[in-house]
Amino acid sequence: MNIFRFAGDMFHLISILVLLLKIYATKSCSGISLKTQELYALVFVTRYLDLFTDFISVYNTVMKLVFIGSTAAIVWCMQWHPVVKRSYDRELDTFRHYFLVGACFVLALFLHENFTFQEIFWAFSIYLEAVAILPQLVLLQRSGNVDNLTGQYVFFLGAYRAFYILNWIYRYFMEQRFSRWISCISGLVQTALYADFFYYYFLSWKNNAKLHLPA
């Protein structure tokens, strides 16, 4: 465990807590893509298949349970909570995310570390996480304005992935046995997807203006 990875995990945790806060505090999920949250729930479930078979550390197990639990809570809220579900932008959140699931699964069948059930689902979850934000970014572009909690949510998600890249660079130089190309390449693709959002986020922060994404 190094500081970059710990910081990355904390940013990831904060991003999910910000989202939960927004939903519980405002009893609204406007501007949030349910499809992205469903993709994240699938990412965590398929990545943490070793939750009950391999014990790595208390921290690792606790964080996995928190990520699965909080994302499941967000998906549940957006679909079943009587008040929250009314504010879901159903007609704007139309990204066909099943294609993302299919494409990532096919890719995982070809590109993986070992051809085992757990490894294929792990690679699938890595690829899916890279593109899971797409429905959310599309929704933000369609809804034009970005309310600051949702903006912070995407910001912290980007920070989490950026720190993970620093973590891989650190591990590459510090550990002789470092081969996590699937995570690295997929993580780079994922962070690149955030880059344009970061650019507009920074502009809005610099001009102290409302974050406005070009349609």
Binding site: R5, D9, H12, R47, D50, D54, I56, S57, N60, M63, K64, F67, E113, E119, W122, Y164, N167, R177, R180, S183
Partner: peptide, 10 residues
């Protein structure tokens, strides 16, 4: 501690 573990990252 984590040698040999494939995926110690979250």
């Amino acid at each position: 501690l984590l040698s040999g573990k494939q995926h110690d990252e979250l």
